[in-house]
Amino acid sequence: MLSGNLLTTDGWIRGRLHIQDGRIAALEGERADPADNDEPCILPGFIDLHVHGGGGADVMEGSAAVATMARLHARHGTTSLLATTVTAPRAELRRVLADLGDHARTRSAGGARVLGVHLEGPYINPGRLGAQPDAAVAAVLDEVLDYLALAPVRIVTLAPEIAGHMEIIRALAGRGVRVQIGHSAGTYEDGVRALEHGAAGFTHLFNAMSPLHHRNPGMVGAALAHADYAEIIPDLVHVHPGAVQAAARAIPRLYAVTDSTAAAGMPDGAYRLGSQHVTKCMGGVRLADGTLAGSTLTMDQALRNLVSIGLPLADVSHHLSRHAADYLGLADRGRIAPGAWADLVVLDRALALTATFVEGERIVEDA
């Protein structure tokens, strides 16, 4: 049993939550404003749909690295995630996906649930690589379906302006895969067409895509004008706080991701992002030429960042949990309600994380 200020699907209550067999068995309490008491706040566990690593481990190293990453992020409130790949040659992607296919169907004790895979690339624009390795290719449906057979790929990021990609978007959407627009030099019109063909969201909004200009609105303009869902990295480095607020106002189900690398939770130094050498220094991760290369963000810090720029805590919780769950069609995660998984975070009054529960298992910080 947990007690405190519970952010339920019906709003805040001050009361108790009962856990049985890994799920929320019952809720009891009365409506209350958390500002009126000193009880802890209990929110749905965070869901990170774009994470490359953590704790020194990189997803492209395989399932053992994913387990390490899942444990690191669970200690920061992430209760479920998508293991996110980077652009790589076909043979390497097949090897990694085959390995991840087995791990994605299990959960290691002390770690977040791995819900599947986010395939970020290789179907991106070589002119908008960001920190992705230079191995971009145009998508071929048989190859994409081969990847889907190897692992539970839930999201595919691609650039819709590449020849043949509109048809790929339609084919994947018809198979229930969430296709996201990202690493794209496409126009506003390309973005609108991609959404009409079944694209569902945008990958790390504002980053590695054609920007907004009032006479050339680009992919950012297409997202702000038409998207229901989009990712954003709220480390306050990748995106200015004002742009975060604009996106939160324009996109109904904006959801936060970390885009974290192996450097998350680690000291400054040299790490890997797929085949790329990256350096963590002064709170960021960069390539040798200074290009941002993912982040060291954790979801508990994302929450504090979003609150610090003026977003209400309940709204921030939706950006970190509910919207991502809804995006993947997960009715039993990302919310506090009877029957849902007991994926929970407990925060003190300073918004410091004091406990994470993953499917009812309490995750304790390392001493």
Rank of each mutant, 00 (worst) to 15 (best):
F357D: 02
V220G: 00
I155D: 04
T261K: 15
A264E: 10
G56Q: 13
V153Q: 05
P312A: 00
D146W: 03
M1G: 13
D348N: 04
N5V: 12
T68S: 15
N305E: 05
G360D: 06
H52D: 07
L292H: 09
N5C: 13
T84C: 13
I336P: 07
A288M: 10
R249T: 03
G182L: 07
G360T: 05
S184H: 07
A35G: 11
I169Y: 01
Y229D: 13
V86P: 01
A199R: 07
G110Q: 03
P44Q: 12
P211H: 03
N207I: 02
L303Q: 02
A350W: 03
A324K: 14
C41D: 05
E143C: 02
T291N: 04
N216F: 10
L273Y: 13
L2Q: 06
V220D: 02
H50G: 10
V345M: 04
R178H: 11
Q132T: 03
T261P: 13
A104G: 05
D48F: 02
H18P: 05
R16Y: 14
R349S: 10
D300E: 06
A324C: 14
R75S: 11
E28P: 06
P211T: 04
A262Q: 10
D315S: 15
A131L: 03
L72V: 10
A340W: 09
A223W: 03
D48Q: 00
R322P: 02
G121D: 00
L100Y: 06
Q245F: 09
L141W: 08
G53W: 15
V220R: 03
R322M: 07
L72Q: 11
G55N: 09
T9W: 12
E231Q: 14
A65R: 03
H226I: 09
A112P: 11
D268Y: 04
R304C: 00
D326P: 08
H240N: 14
T203M: 02
L148R: 02
A200R: 05
G198D: 09
S210I: 00
G284P: 07
S210T: 09
R175H: 14
P217A: 08
V114H: 15
I232E: 06
R128D: 04
H50F: 12
L236D: 06
A138C: 08
N207G: 00
L205S: 01
Y188Q: 09
D259N: 11
G186S: 10
L43S: 06
D142Y: 05
N216C: 14
S295P: 07
A314I: 00
G284F: 14
A331R: 15
Q245Y: 10
R128V: 01
P34R: 06
